[in-house]
Write a protein that binds this DNA or RNA. Sequence first.
DNA 1: CTGAAAGCGCTTACAG
DNA 2: CTGAAAGCGCTTACAG
Lengths: 345, 345
Amino acid sequence: MASIKDVAAEAGVSVATVSRVLNDHPSVSDDARTRVLAAVDALGYRPNAVARSLRTDQTRTLGLVISDVMNPYFTELARSVEEEARTLGYSVIIGNADERPDLQDHHVRTLLDRRIDGLLVSPTDGGSPLMLDAARGGTPMVFVDRWIPGVDVPVVRSDGRGAVRDLVAHLHALGHRRLAIIAGPAATTTGRERVEAFREALQAHGLELPDAYTGQGDFQAESGRRVTEGFLDLPEPPEVVFAADNLMALGALDAVRARGLRIPQDIALAAFDDIPWFVHTDPPITAVAQPTGELGRAAVRALVDRIEGRPPQSVTLPARLVVRRSCGEQPASPESAPAQNRSQS
Amino acid sequence: MASIKDVAAEAGVSVATVSRVLNDHPSVSDDARTRVLAAVDALGYRPNAVARSLRTDQTRTLGLVISDVMNPYFTELARSVEEEARTLGYSVIIGNADERPDLQDHHVRTLLDRRIDGLLVSPTDGGSPLMLDAARGGTPMVFVDRWIPGVDVPVVRSDGRGAVRDLVAHLHALGHRRLAIIAGPAATTTGRERVEAFREALQAHGLELPDAYTGQGDFQAESGRRVTEGFLDLPEPPEVVFAADNLMALGALDAVRARGLRIPQDIALAAFDDIPWFVHTDPPITAVAQPTGELGRAAVRALVDRIEGRPPQSVTLPARLVVRRSCGEQPASPESAPAQNRSQS
DNA sequence: CTGAAAGCGCTTACAG
DNA sequence: CTGAAAGCGCTTACAG
């Protein structure tokens, strides 16, 4: 592979001059520029990003560590992150933690070893020593979706409190009184917040959230199935199951189906996170939709601000309720979803 | 950030010795090793992968360029690729082409600039000059899922011919005679092969595939919707629509639903690529399932073989039919899927 | 405007 | 077993 030396030789100039034309340095003669460009073309030369990074101490690369790529919510997040980063001249390297703290650490370490310019993290847990060190130790960092309390790192996330209130109001209006939740891991902020928001919304209607109706999941489908089976085995099963993410909703669906029960006649189902498939499940599923793309873009902007020396800002965007048929028919509108529903588009 | 020099100073040895203990070189005294390790620990030293790569001319990194991360099939492929690569001591950087040749080239170029050790590609088109140059120009490369004919690059893919034959037999047995397909882009091998396999299978039953029943899609949901609408507008609409991937099936579902038609009573639907949601759609969708994880792992093994100087091997794995209810009830088994159906697990 | 030279952080023959 | 030195491919003050 041709190096800058080969180009210099071919063009009859020094490597310094080649470097200058490659980096659009103003003080290069037209003649030199022309010859260098011709040589670059002739040799099919491409600068070695590794060497450049070593010299400039920047990689123009962002690391993104997410908890689970297979979760469509995170896939979409990753996609919007890459898009915005590309617009700003950065590449992104994705590390998939698969909800495993050890894997998360593996990726953080690898990314740090590669000297990425900044790190976007949706932490799987409360923060390993490695992660905490990185956060405090000067690595530009931004939390997205989930975050770790007590660390001075900007957070870009969405607030589902209002949407969960709307959901509970909807369920209450439909006559449901025994509501259960499949929670995410307590080690994650989203795992805790969604349960709290649910509990608070219930209280506003004078309803309790008994322990028996709080199942511990891990944001993966299998746990949704397991918890739902537990609910169905109860002497008095809940009338509604609210899954704290879309994968656990998938597991819940599996469990309900395995028993031959019907949704919403036998049991109602709602989920946090909206995905295109929820329109076509049997029945279509009522969900809390996050502004995922906006979240990813805002997170990148905050991180790049931090990297480039501008003050980064935390951002909180509201989620919203998308009503479909999985909790029972709406008295008013027979339609499955509001006009604004983006997963229908 | 501490460098190897700092460690050497702290341990009272030369940087050469530090490098040796870090790389498990045998000729290092126990004493030196202990002191170096202590210094590494004290300083929290982590080797700079950028510098190491520049020196050794290898990055222990694989590039993976896929056509669309949002497609669950490719997400799963990416996940299995990363897993196998990690097992073999490699990292992977994913580039998402979004079915756009220009974006694909962008990622190939970026990856090459970073001097990745090898490239895994599922090409979006017939091969840009850049891609062709890379393939011929010595970059270790393996095609996965899709490939470019006429290039000497190993291919790891699955053969859906048998499964498509099974599908058509199934449809024929159900009494369907007017079968249509939503094809993928003709510039991709999978786009062409699935249509050919379908046509051949039809011929075996004495059926034709008229042009009006061959809609041109692009593997994205929107095209599935558009093509399906065209089919439904025909004076004599097809009895079955076969979508050449799962996203176009989603679009088809949208279109059918928008017209208020029922599946399978009004029109039957089948898809290439199986995903967990197909179990829970209304109705569950009959699909051709690829051994996605195996594909990803085999592709990595082939690429690493190539990188490390062993002869790489092309691999073709069979796909299989998963019968559900979207094409009509099975006369024999009332069950929605065979026992082996992995998307039920 | 241009080039010689230093240096980024490593690894690895080479000599001892 | 150990260290001094070269060199990977760049960029960038510095001097002219």
